[in-house]
Amino acid sequence: MDKIKFERVTKKFLVRDEYKKGAQREFTAIKDIEFSVKEGEFITLVGPSGCGKSTLLDLLTGLTQPTKGRILIDGREITGPGLDRGIVFQQYALFPWKTARGNIEFGLEAKGIPKSERKEKAEYYLDLVGLKNFADRYPHELSGGMKQRVAIARSLAFNPDVLLMDEPFAALDAQTRETLQTELLRIWKKTGKTIIFITHGIDEAVYLGERVVVLSANPGTVKKIVDIPLKDRLEDADIKSNPAFINARREVWNLLHEPEFQGAHI
């Protein structure tokens, strides 16, 4: 069964009209987006800037509503934010006045989990992301990679079915990014979450996603959904030299570099 289903989702905004002073005009951020995500699937979304990635994420979190169409999760329409979805932002969004543990407990508190259980759960998820010894550190005492681990732990801790990730590794250095990609795959295997992962990195999209949704810009639409036939991402240390990876990578690359993208600021 489909975990998440986009049904001809369109989102329009009123923006300032750059040609007529003081006037506003309608801007279509995404148009007729339609695809589904299976339960437990890892799906990545890749596209040029202006393809409405952030808009899609805001719609999924329920912080904004689509102008047309609807998004279903377990067959029910998304009408607002909920703890069935956890979000990981590029800029971590950790509360700087709370320790790593405190940040993880924040989500648990929001879910109404009693105080006695919060500590234990926080410990478990800190351990899962490999930060057991950093529980009492404040965010400013952690490196970028550690902050993102805390953010992932925070989102996992209140046990959402779906994890939404908005370019979570974009601000990290290459080495940390690779480590965290592998860690994320391991966590995904272990927890069986449905993951929607937004990125602008082609390699990242192909490496992580079982399917890659390639978006086109202005307005954002689904160009193609590419199946990635990689089986043992974690076992194969040199997977990026695997012909299947190279072919998939080339396909996504070609899709993103077709003529319609020319001038679209990729």
């Binding site: 979190t61 329920g62 912080l63 607002g80 934010p81 909920g82 703890l83 979805r85 979000i87 932002f89 800029q91 969004a93 509360f95 924040f106 989500g107 929001a110 879910k111 209140f158």
Partner: peptide
């Protein structure tokens, strides 16, 4: 920071 507000709101508080 609006991101903190967004993050908290997404947890439906």
């Amino acid at each position: 920071d609006p991101l903190l507000i967004k993050s908290a709101r997404s947890m439906n508080i």
